[in-house]
Design a protein around this nucleic acid. Sequence first.
RNA 1: UCAGAGGGCCGGACGGUCGCCCGCCGCCGCUAAAGCUAUGACGUGGCUUGCCGCGCCGAAGCCUUGGCGAAGGCGGGAGGAAAGUCCGGGCUCCAAUAUGGCAGGAUGCCGGAUAACGUCCGGCCAAUGCAAAUUGAGGGAAAGUGCCACAGAAAGGAAACUACCUCCUGCAAGUUCACUGCGUGAAAAGGCAUGAGGAAAAGCUGAAAGGGUGCGGUAAGAGCGUACCGGGCCGAUGGUAACAAAGGCCGCAUGGUAAACCCCAUCCGGAGCAAGACCAAAUAGGGACAGUAUUGCGGGCCAUAUCGUGGCUGUCCGGGUUGGUUGCUAGAGACGGCGAGUAAUCGCCGCCCCAGAUGAAUGAUCGUCACUGCUUUGGCAGGACAGAACCCGGCUUACAGGCCCUCUGACUUU
Length: 120
Amino acid sequence: MTDHKIQLGRLTKRSEFLYVRDGRYRAIGAVVIQMRKNPGHDAIRVGFTATKKIGNAVTRNRVKRRLREVARALLADYGLPGHDYVFIARDNTNGRKWQDLLDDAQKALITLSKPPKTKT
RNA sequence: UCAGAGGGCCGGACGGUCGCCCGCCGCCGCUAAAGCUAUGACGUGGCUUGCCGCGCCGAAGCCUUGGCGAAGGCGGGAGGAAAGUCCGGGCUCCAAUAUGGCAGGAUGCCGGAUAACGUCCGGCCAAUGCAAAUUGAGGGAAAGUGCCACAGAAAGGAAACUACCUCCUGCAAGUUCACUGCGUGAAAAGGCAUGAGGAAAAGCUGAAAGGGUGCGGUAAGAGCGUACCGGGCCGAUGGUAACAAAGGCCGCAUGGUAAACCCCAUCCGGAGCAAGACCAAAUAGGGACAGUAUUGCGGGCCAUAUCGUGGCUGUCCGGGUUGGUUGCUAGAGACGGCGAGUAAUCGCCGCCCCAGAUGAAUGAUCGUCACUGCUUUGGCAGGACAGAACCCGGCUUACAGGCCCUCUGACUUU
């Protein structure tokens, strides 16, 4: 159980998003998750991205809120400390059922938490 | 009841679980500054030699104020268009954006409202509609210039052309009559051609053809005359005005286009909260003040008046970029009542505080009930347009579904 509060940090600068973009990523269902180890801290930090391809400002806001709830529900259990995450919305994120969206993100996070098989 | 016109309003509701942003409250912790003191340090005096008095310093102690952090409590938290960024203002800077002119731009019936507007309200005129109503860049075409495609004879000082009418001359054939013989003469009407004149009524066109129709008139015609319609000029009178208009005169004279140039009138400096101000960090040009020289430069351009700035010397210090703070939300403010006004709107009183984020909060999820559609009547789907970003007043555009009020026309009934 995770009774202790895990403080989720927030990515706010463009350079931080660009840093995570060069890390590992996994796309399942309606969500794409990028992850990269950040030696500068040992917390879990997260950012969200919804491009204009998703829709107008109202849909982009709603999609980012859903992804934020997904991250709050899952990262405490499946996130690795000292890593930065970026959740990217896809075209069907808005219409995806809530339980399916949770499953997608959970699978992606489990895959990412295992060490990579082929190390380059 | 059906069809239609105008205006106003709402933009699902309730609950469970888990969260976000801002403000306030009190508690705890940390921290900064000021103040107070001893069981403290120092100086000095007294004496019974380890106590007392005085002065001063000064906390890890007390107290006051401020800041930060975390558990908690309370309050608030997207729209009618928040949108497009199309107008108008407030606010800020641009070295002063002052006065006059030019250029450029915008607006354009009249009156009112307003901080202002290209907005709104009321009215006038024109067009459309049976009507309620709607629409209108709605000043000037006798200041000037330009343009009027295609078609058409002609697209603008009214003339040329076709066709029409009259007259002169010429031509050849025919008709009739006479003489007579295979021809001659005469006559009237007509044909063709040239010329002169009349007239602008007819000419397929075109968005538009220099008033229209009828009758008379005439060689043919013509406002040539006349009746009606249309038009122009003057205009009693009404209205603040746009404008309306009784009546009179004129046979009728200056086509359209100013979302073509232009003319007239009114208004307008530019850029925008990524404006601007402050703090911290770190690398090259640099900045401030004083003295000196007196000319150049500086609003889109010119002139006037001030104003700012540049060169050199001396002294003293820090700006682009990144991050943070501020600007930042109490305002042409919301609601209610009364009053003025046809209305837009304004005045007074009462009451309230109602988002301030910055990779950007204002929610995610589940259930119930309403709503809409389909349906085998059990249920199954769906929820429009759309997200504050300095703030107001408008305009424009988008919008599922629903509610209310007023008015018009037709039909039916009483």
